[in-house]
Design a protein around this nucleic acid. Sequence first.
DNA 1: GTCTGCTATAAGTCCAATATATAATTGGAC
DNA 2: GTCCAATTATATATTGGACTTATAGCAGAC
Lengths: 294, 294
Amino acid sequence: MEVHQLRYFCAVSETGSFTRAAEKEQVAQPSLSQQIMKLEEELGVRLFDRLGRTVRLTGFGQVFLPRARAILGELKAAKDEVAERQVAVSGPVSIGVIPTIAPYFLPLPLALFSRKYPQASITVAEDVTARLMDRLRAGQIDLAIMAMPMRGHDVETFNLRTERLFAIMPRAHRLAKKRKVMLKELRDQPFLLLREDHCFRDTAIEVCKRARVMPRVVFESGQFSSILAMVGAGLGISIVPAMAVEQREDCAFVAVGDDKASRTIGVVTLKGRYLSRVQHAFLAHLHTFAPKES
Amino acid sequence: MEVHQLRYFCAVSETGSFTRAAEKEQVAQPSLSQQIMKLEEELGVRLFDRLGRTVRLTGFGQVFLPRARAILGELKAAKDEVAERQVAVSGPVSIGVIPTIAPYFLPLPLALFSRKYPQASITVAEDVTARLMDRLRAGQIDLAIMAMPMRGHDVETFNLRTERLFAIMPRAHRLAKKRKVMLKELRDQPFLLLREDHCFRDTAIEVCKRARVMPRVVFESGQFSSILAMVGAGLGISIVPAMAVEQREDCAFVAVGDDKASRTIGVVTLKGRYLSRVQHAFLAHLHTFAPKES
DNA sequence: GTCTGCTATAAGTCCAATATATAATTGGAC
DNA sequence: GTCCAATTATATATTGGACTTATAGCAGAC
């Protein structure tokens, strides 16, 4: 049973004639006759009574006609819906962000995009890098915002921004008034760091290592705000990226002067993943937050 | 958009692999790949993400899948319904009968058929010959039972039975005691006849003409029972076919002795008209009431 | 690196839908 | 009855498209 057979059948039903149906369907009459016969053969019943001058539906034809029409209608509807979704910048966008970026970077781009495309429904999943990558590969999220570089032959990335690191210490700390601090000056200070699965912990430890400093960890948390509060309480010091810097009564932020004491964040997508119109639009939107390429 | 493309699409969705889908659909994998690509091209979107080892539906694919499944399901349902109607001796049978046959002949065959095929639903249209033929040609009735012969290149007929005619007169009539009567003996009798559009009126007049008798009509009706009552009341005499003969206090029935004083009834179907299983069964059932062919 | 498993591409085959031409049938005019 | 117009069915040839086989390309495992 083929689609064109159904089309021909409906055309004959409507015109009441093989000849006129053939004209309507832009096909030679014998071809149409054959296809109708083939359909009748497959169904095992005659669909039309050929009464010389005129052609009329049999009882079976009358039963089959509405179904054939429904099927043709649904074929068109299916096609239309896809086309509709294609032109409309609407539908779901699912993004993943690591916790050390989400609260600082995301609000603005998200708000701007939502205002530009009110039809888009964005879902944000906040999770650590490893699990975000799992979700990305599983197709659960369309893109992820995380720390760069992210290597892997199955992903594509671009950078959003690179930010300096800041040492954070209690107001009363001896280094608190400096405009800049070198990491080696922080040697032997008690460190407050993120938990192990957070990638910024690795970043912090990495830059320390580079400065020949082995941080002594006295507190671990899943978010900067806890760390800030603890530092403010005098528990120790820490390192945070620029975007986590905020005005606080109890804390002082001092730029880290070491070379390469920075974090780069960027966007990761799965290579070969087809993105819908909205998803693509969101990606393009994020691109506007990226540094100009020269 | 072709049916097999939808089948392939669903198969890939279910198996998550072009190769396994090809096996399932009994087709070479490249062919299946081509058809999927063709479908994607027609829709203008990618339906699958090809991610090396695995294949996954895109957002569009997820939208399209339920619709594709529905369409395939309805194709099958349409086919099944036709097949169902084909094997089952059930459904509508619409027959037409002239009023001078209906009450006498029809009850028995109808009852027997209904008992044999309880699923069949028979509709009887009682009307005069001309209008029955219109209905037959319009496809409103499947067959008609009427007086033979019925000529016409677009119909097929067979005879059911030939019956003698009977003169009907009041008990007190001078001819009432005879076993046989010739039409010429009825000359000058007041005649009660059916109305003009009833064919048995023509039959009666025809046999009279043959006997050189011009009936003087004093009453016309649409049914024999009225005529019988009037004859019983002494209004005059009439002629009826054998099947209309019944025991009555007030009437006497005397066989008409003239040659060819008979009526033949038969079944008419439209040539080239397709009959469903039940309709055919009813036709065959009527055949069992026909005289044996030698 | 090699091997395996998967999809895409290439080239050729073959069937089925199509077109053209014509026969067969019917309906209507005469 | 014959003849003509209209319609569908049949015959034959063509062609387009789905199919096959073979192979390339690519990712992942080892």
